[in-house]
Design a protein around this nucleic acid. Structure first.
Length: 929
RNA sequence: GCGGAUAUGGCGUAAUUGGUAGCCGCGCCAGAUUUAGGAUCUGGUGCCGAAAGGCGUGAGGGUUCGAGUCCCCCUAUCCGCACCA
């Protein structure tokens, strides 16, 4: 029988499916191992060869772990809510559920052809009510919780209410939107609505006013990338910055724990670094500046403004203050004669998004008319307003030290404000001196100290003199959690007296209602405003339900927990299942989720951990980022004004236009002329100028995309080469974590290897034939060398080198014409994670009755690999000249003797004396002359 | 600007972690077989050189008996973050 991969692959895929070979259950007698892929968003375009890269790697690892005796959980599902399906629905009127289901079916079909060992009984879809019930459930828990800074964890909000009733909030240290203080008496005197508003300040899931891009004509909030030059990309309508009441998650409360947790998990340094950056911890101080009295209004409480700084040491160099345009201090500081100018400036900044302000760094600003007093020096400094200060970070106000901050420096130069250097010998004629080094001067009691000493001393001074407090700030902001969209999870929230309340747990899930159109209502409400009967029944009254839906990351934040117990209708995950599976041991996915999904699910997980419903504080123990597979585009060159195409090597002789050509009608950069003519009608009459009788195409590396005609479909590869070849080839392409272009060149080599492997089991008449003779030492050595190499390669995710190891092994066994069962059987096992179909086929041909999946990974014997004689390279002055064979256990004296007895040594010594002889046992001999 | 990563034949890559650089595959060359090959098999293939030999891991310097690997300093490319005070 020839290697008929199509027949083999179809046969085993069917068999695995029918026999539920990959079904996983809790088994207390076996150690567990949880391997997870980032589940895909099922787009209409289907899979291209880049998508399965990570899935193949995780599949190999899962199969390997299973052979090693682990009980492996390896599930798959779909991140099915999202924008593309909704956009498509708006354009075509087709329900997003219909297109999503269709896409899922197509994905499943493609995945099934690749021979993955997913346990499909555990499949989840984020858009199914049974699944999003638990997304809604988690939201309710967040609504009913607050974050206690002292305990460093989330706790039930009922606890908080109790404390409010007995002692107010004076003593509490809680994460909140705004600092407010009240006594128990004050609390009790408030109406229910007022109390609810206060609680909102503390909830983990809370409703608050947030700045957003609002487009009145479209009646929706837009993401930053949907706005260019203040106009919406769709329609070109003006967009403004507006404060809107939106749901948010208090992710910022977890900033420190998210940072600390990174130390406990095995992620790549770069990914951890990205998250650290994103969390952006900075240590500094909040310092109060008194506003200069005569210019303030008469409200005594507003006589201070607080700034955040990491450079308290530079306070003697403050020559002005700057407020963000949106800062609440603006109203207090601005003087009547400056008001008109300030208002105009604020209006002009409002028209620009934060992103545009960042992109266009022209210095702009306006003097407020007000002054503040430096608490260290007593000096009076002007207060300015500028959009280089962000309202969302720190206090939205800064003390400007132009000598030592480049942004302040530019501002001071532009508006001609004074600049006072504070570090001995620094040159600030051209630019500011931002480095935290040198000796302080012009700084009163800080003079003579180094910068780090001065920072410390200044911070202590602030604290001891009650000028402010030492403070840690984080860049991480709370996640805005509502979207004015249809295709997402509905909130389990209804409104009574204008305040949100959670629906009863037994009423979950709140199912997504039908609507006539997937557009905002005429009055500007989200699409759910179109739903009939969108009310919640409570105590025989109807209350309106929330009209927003949840964002994309809601459904993907806890899906790994749901896989542990996907059909549980009583809880997100049973404690039995969670105690067993705990968390993900290996997570494989792209790096693009570094600051999205991977932050949110860590937050979500920590929250559930605080709640006591799960066992582990971190969701993903080890994470491997697979690289992107880029497209490799092919080009043809049309001579301008003709329908004649010229081959790559001759194109410079003509005036040509470069055109993309479908890579599927090009083989090894040679164009298939017949298929090219058939590709597009305008090419039917195409003529060609060839070189050596062929048309050579140009190539380039680009994103894999339909419009660039460089998409390679895995189905096509599977038909021509088989899934096993595709799997091996994707791994062989290079290190898993590296990005690389897809190049079908070279796939033949891998396919050839599988055929050679197949041939080891067959005689010249293509009949299955293996010998039962005892293996030779040399054959055993080849086998054990390969087992050892492949095992260590899989464990270090060097799948590319394990494929090489297989090739070497098969080449060597082929040269020995070795067809011995005792060699081939273990070899089949170790190759099966990579090429499961051919593995299973040969395994059964070898006479095994149960699936190869249930075999054990063979142990290797190190003793077999040890040589009696070692090749010692002999070097002179570090330059290796020849090798000698010496017994492994030879003494240094014997090694020296053997080397010097060798006639070649005499030649290279050329009569000279050896100055020094270095012998590294088992490695090398170096003679210095 | 800050941070991270990478740099090795014509190409994708490998190197027991400081010990003979270039494994494996593609491509190329030669040969065998074949009516034919975009099939199969065998051998060769870093560069210069007829050879002996010399040179060679982005550039330059250093440590070492010995450096692709460690240190310093450039350069280029890719990826994050980016007015975060």
């Amino acid at each position: 029988m020839e290697y008929n991969f199509l027949r083999i692959e179809e046969k085993w895929q069917k068999s695995w499916m029918q026999n539920r070979v990959y079904k996983t259950e809790i088994d207390p007698d076996k150690p567990k191992f949880y391997v997870l892929d980032m589940f895909p968003y099922p787009s209409g375009a289907g899979l291209h060869v880049g998508h399965p890269l990570g899935y193949i790697a995780s599949d190999i690892y899962s199969r390997y772990k299973r052979l090693k005796g682990f009980n492996v959980l390896h599930p798959m599902g779909y991140d099915a809510f999202g924008l593309p399906a909704e956009q498509y629905a708006i354009e075509t009127g087709q329900h997003p559920e219909v297109t999503t289901e269709k896409n899922i079916e197509r994905y499943r079909e493609q995945l099934d052809k690749l021979g993955f060992c997913f346990d499909w009984d555990r499949e989840v879809k984020t858009c199914s009510p049974e699944y999003y019930k638990w997304t809604q459930w988690a939201f309710i828990q967040m609504f009913q919780s607050y974050y206690c800074r002292d305990a460093q964890q989330s706790r039930p909000i009922a606890e908080l209410i109790q404390v409010f009733e007995t002692e107010g909030n004076q003593r509490l240290n809680i994460a909140c939107t705004e600092e407010i203080r009240f006594t128990a008496t004050e609390w009790k005197s408030k109406s229910e609505k007022e109390q609810q508003e206060i609680l909102m300040n503390y909830r983990i899931a809370y409703l608050a006013d947030t700045m957003v891009n609002w487009c009145p004509q479209l009646g929706t909030v837009l993401a930053n990338d949907e706005v260019v030059n203040g106009l919406s990309v769709r329609g070109g309508y003006p967009v403004e910055q507006r404060k809107m009441r939106q749901w948010s998650l208090r992710v910022s409360a977890y900033a420190q724990r998210l940072l600390d947790g990174l130390e406990t998990i095995e992620w790549s340094e770069s990914l951890k670094e990205t998250q650290k950056n994103w969390i952006g911890r900075s240590e500094g101080a909040e310092i109060r500046f008194q506003l200069a009295g005569e210019l303030c209004n008469n409200d005594l409480d507003s006589h201070f403004m607080t700034v955040f700084t990491t450079r308290a040491d530079t306070i003697f160099g403050v020559t002005f203050m700057v407020l963000a345009p949106e800062s609440n201090y603006v109203a207090q500081v601005v003087t009547p004669d400056c008001k008109a100018e300030v208002d105009a400036y604020i209006a002009s900044t409002k028209r620009r998004t934060e992103r545009e302000r960042i992109a266009d760094r022209k210095v702009s600003g306006v003097f407020s008319g007000g002054y503040a007093i430096n608490p260290f020096s007593g000096e009076k400094v002007p207060v300015w307003i500028s959009d280089y200060v962000l309202a969302g970070y720190g206090t939205g106000a800064i003390m400007a030290v132009p000598a030592h901050d480049s942004r302040d420096y530019l501002f001071a130069k532009h508006f001609d404000l004074p600049i006072i250097p504070l570090i001995e010998g620094c040159d600030i004629s051209k630019e500011s001196f931002d480095a935290k080094e040198g000796i302080m001067c012009n700084s009163g009691f800080l003079n003579g100290l180094t910068v780090p000493e001065a920072i410390q001393k200044a911070k202590e001074y602030v604290r001891n003199n009650n000028l402010g407090e030492i403070k840690v700030n984080y860049r991480l902001r709370d996640a805005i959690f509502s979207r004015q969209r249809y295709w997402g999870e509905p909130f389990p929230i209804y409104y009574r007296d204008g305040m949100p309340y959670t629906v009863a747990l037994e009423d979950l899930p709140i199912e997504l209602p039908e609507v006539d159109k997937f557009l905002p209502t005429e009055t500007g409400e989200p699409p759910l405003g179109r739903a009939k009967n969108w009310f919640y029944d409570s105590e025989n009254k109807k209350y309106p339900l929330e009209l927003n839906t949840m964002p994309g990351f809601a459904g993907s934040s806890a899906y790994y927990l749901r896989y542990m117990d996907p059909h549980n209708s009583e809880s997100l995950v049973s404690s039995e299942a969670n105690q067993y599976w705990r968390n993900v041991d290996l997570y494989i996915g792209g790096t693009e989720h570094a600051t999205g999904h991977l932050i949110y699910s860590r937050f979500w997980n920590k929250f559930l951990y605080d709640l006591g419903v799960i066992a582990e504080d971190e969701p993903f123990k080890k994470l491997v980022n697979q690289g992107m597979i880029q497209g490799r585009s092919n080009f043809v060159y049309r001579i301008n004004g003709t329908n004649t195409f010229v081959s790559l090597g001759l194109k410079d002789e003509y005036d040509t236009t470069e055109l993309h050509v479908d890579v599927n009608i090009v083989n090894n950069d040679i164009l298939d002329l017949k298929r090219f003519k058939a590709w597009k009608p305008e090419y039917e009459t195409a003529e060609f100028i060839l070189e050596d009788g062929e048309y050579r195409c140009g190539y380039g590396v680009e994103k894999m995309s339909k419009s660039l005609y460089n998409v390679v479909n895995p189905d096509d590869i599977v038909v021509t080469y088989g899934a096993d070849t595709l799997r091996l080839y994707e791994m062989f392409l290079g290190p898993l974590e590296q990005s690389k272009p897809w190049d079908t060149k070279g796939i033949d080599g891998v396919h050839r290897f599988l055929r050679k492997f197949w041939r080891l089991f067959h005689n010249d008449e293509h009949e299955f034939y293996v010998s039962d003779d005892a293996p030779l030492q040399s054959e055993l050595k080849i086998l054990h060398k390969t087992i050892k190499k492949v095992q260590s390669d899989i464990e270090s995710f060097s799948f590319n080198t394990s494929v090489s190891a297989f090739m070497i092994c098969v080449n060597e066994l082929g040269a020995l014409k070795c067809n011995k069962r005792q060699i081939l059987q273990p070899l089949t096992i170790i190759i099966s994670p990579f090429a499961p179909h051919i593995g299973e086929e040969l395994w059964r041909l070898l006479g095994n009755k149960t699936s190869i999946v249930d075999a054990s990974f063979p142990e290797y014997d190190d003793n077999l690999l040890v040589e009696n004689l070692i090749e010692y390279p002999v070097s002179f002055n570090g330059k290796t000249r020849f090798t000698v064979q010496i017994a492994i256990d030879a003494s240094e004296e014997t090694i020296k003797q053997t080397v010097f007895d060798n006639p070649q040594t005499q030649k290279f010594m050329n009569g000279k004396e050896a100055k020094k002889i270095i012998i590294v046992k088992g490695k090398i001999v170096n003679i210095v002359i």
